[in-house]
Amino acid sequence: MPESAEEALIEALRAEHLDLVEEARVIRPKRVAILARREGFLDLARALRDEHGFLHPVSAGAVDYPKEYRIQMIYYLMNPSSRFMLTLRVDLPRDEASLPSMTRIWEAMSFHEREAKEMFGIDFEGHPNMVPLLLPPDWRGGYPLRKDFEGEGAEP
């Protein structure tokens, strides 16, 4: 028997969706990290919502790792009954960072994906309204939260 809800989730995912999950671990109580594969990411997200009750979206954001040549996109999700924070992650190559939009699964990820697009340059395929969220419409400075951002006016 798994000891906690966190471990139960990880065991269930390993049993059902082993091919979609790269790595799953409990960081500490109430914090679970799942690193998913880019292929089939949408299927895993749908399974998390429909089969594991993660129907309460919290947020989404990204982290840039230029040395390892990847950007990690992170979705923060919550299950209203077990109430731990699930961070669903996926690594994307820096030069062609693209992912199917999660707005099909969690509508409220719309704002967060718009922010990730303007701040990190991640393309979300199938996003219904991809316009800048926080930056001005005439912004020409590249992607501000990438580590190699040099200031407004530099080439993206």
């Binding site: 919290v58 947020s59 954001g61 982290v63 992170i74 923060y76």
Partner: peptide
Amino acid sequence: GIHMFTDGGMNPYRVKINSPTLRNMYV
């Protein structure tokens, strides 16, 4: 929510702020 990534340096590597108002603005 404050998600802080560290890389062994003096500064945080990245801080992601999950702000409550942004979530409620979507609602």
